[in-house]
């Protein structure tokens, strides 16, 4: 896998998943950079460690659940304070589109 090279189409596909609108220059540059970073990352791809359990969490389990107690939410003006395009009672977004 060390010979991975990202094509421009692959870069655009990943950028689409991540909702990054890249211009052609960025696609070209990221393709190059990602290829070189992935080449390094791929040094672990061949390690024969399929039987090693993955570490999925940062620490051992702990009693981390919250009691079911409701508290009032924010005043609406605080909720909307940072909104780029607030309406009287909500957050406006452009049409969903095609």
């Amino acid at each position: 896998m060390s010979g991975v090279e990202l094509t421009a189409d692959e870069v655009r596909h990943v950028a689409a998943l991540a909702r990054l609108g890249l211009d052609d220059a960025e696609v070209e540059r990221l393709g190059r950079e990602l290829t070189s970073i992935l080449a390094h990352v791929n040094t672990i791809a061949a390690l024969p460690i399929a039987d090693v359990p993955p570490t999925k969490h940062s620490r051992d389990s702990a009693d981390s659940l919250r009691p079911d107690v409701a508290r009032p939410g924010l005043p609406r003006e605080d909720a909307l304070r940072n909104a780029p395009d607030p309406s009287a009672d909500g957050f406006r977004v452009p049409p969903i589109g095609a």
Partner: peptide
């Protein structure tokens, strides 16, 4: 952007 791209890809 670089890191978002790597992470999304991975």
């Amino acid at each position: 952007k670089r890191r978002i791209m790597i992470g999304t890809y991975a």
